[in-house]
Amino acid sequence: MRCFIERVVTNHDVTTDIKVLIPDAGLRRRMSRVIKSAVTTAIETVGGVEGIASLDGIITATGWGCLADSERFLRNVIVDKEQLLNPTPFIQSTFNTVGGQIALLGHNHCYNVTYVNRSHSFEDALLDAMMRAEDGDSEHMLLGAFDEETPSQRRIMERMGLFRKVACGEGAMFAIVGAKRNERSIAEVSTLAFPAENLSHEKVVAEYATDERTHVIYNNYAKYGLYPTSSAQCFAEAVKLVAEGTPEVVIYNEYFGATPTVIVVRCLS
């Protein structure tokens, strides 16, 4: 099983003015920070709203979902004693808000699904894209991941003792995934694995690297912060490295004692 990557964009790469990407001022105002970040990254990835129409699969991933909206609504339920609540944060707290919003902005009726599986969310979404590519269900998909950091979540996780070694993080990443290699392809995903046990750096190299110049991204939480879909940022880094000439990048991701995931991104020969 494999698939081809045509473009990767992270929230840090978005240069187009948000007013151009999301022209509806009311919609922009209602959107929470993570929704804005994810939707603008997605639209930048497809080259503007009109690029959404050509997609035949929209697959999103998030470990935590839209935390700020969830928290806002829950706080209102408690503080306002269940009376006269504004539904907007409730609507936007839904995990598939971003995927649904992308479909809605582009009037696209295609396959649309959201994975919410902690540190495996992005890899599970990638697996879905690879299965669809192989089955000929979809040719040109948008695959993305997003998570946000909020003060409450940071505080709760601090109390759990999770940030002793590494800081919390957040981010959004979207990619165009093709079933077949074409003139826009810049990299290939050749392997996606879910090992049953944790692997040392040496073992990752021994088991997954096929070239002596293979670059390994091993648990890069120091760089991107600790959050469930931070491996999507590693994925963007890997695709960019390969597009610039690195023959192969192996991404090893192991989060809080969860079983690890491995993605191998290769250059197009």
Binding site: F95, N96, T114, N117, D124
Partner: peptide, 9 residues
Amino acid sequence: GYRTTLSTA
């Protein structure tokens, strides 16, 4: 074996 979680409302 393999497990995952979905949430599409």
